[in-house]
Amino acid sequence: MGVRVQEEAFDVGRELAALTAGRVDVGAVASFVGLVRDRNDGQGISAMTLEHYPGMTQSALEDIVEQAKSRWDLLDVLVVHRYGRLVPGDSIVLVLVSSAHRGEAFSACEFVMDFLKTNAPFWKKEVTPDGARWVEARESDAAAVQRWDAS
C-alpha cells in the first residue's frame, strides 16, 4: 500500500507490475488515471499549475486509503498524485486497487477518487487565452461523496 505526492510523471505499467509482483492472490486490479484536458468550461487550456499543502496531502490521501480498506476486502492500494506545472495530455493522478474479485476493486477505486476530489488539499490553476484562473470546485463532486453515505 502506498501514497505518493510527487512532481515527476509516473509510469502506469511499471506501477501496476510492482503492485502485483510476486503475488498469486490478486484476481483483479482496477485503475484510474486522471489527465489534463485541453478545454475546461468552454475555454482552451494551455497549461495548469497544481498547488498542494505539503504534508497534509500525504496524510489526507492515506486517510482515504484507510477508509477504503476498512470498507472493502482489498489486497493493495496505490495513489500517486502530481503537483507543479502540467500541460494537456499529462497525467495528474493514478489510483490502483487490487483485490481477489473485481467488485471490490471497482468500487474502492471510485470511492478513493470521489473522496480525493473533495478531501485532498490540491488546487488547480489553469492558463487560458484570457489569462490564468483558479478552477472552481464542482457541486457534483460533493454529491459524488455523499452517495457513499447511503450505500
Binding site: 497534509m56 489526507a60 476530489k117 490540491f122 488546487w123
Partner: peptide, 29 residues
Amino acid sequence: AAVNQRMADATMPVGEGDEVAFFPPVTGG
C-alpha cells in the same frame, strides 16, 4: 480550514503552536 493538517470545522479548538490553514474548496484529481 485545517488544524495540524486535518480538516476542521469552526468549533475545532486552536492551541499554542498549532498550524492552522485556510483555503478554498479543493480541486485536485
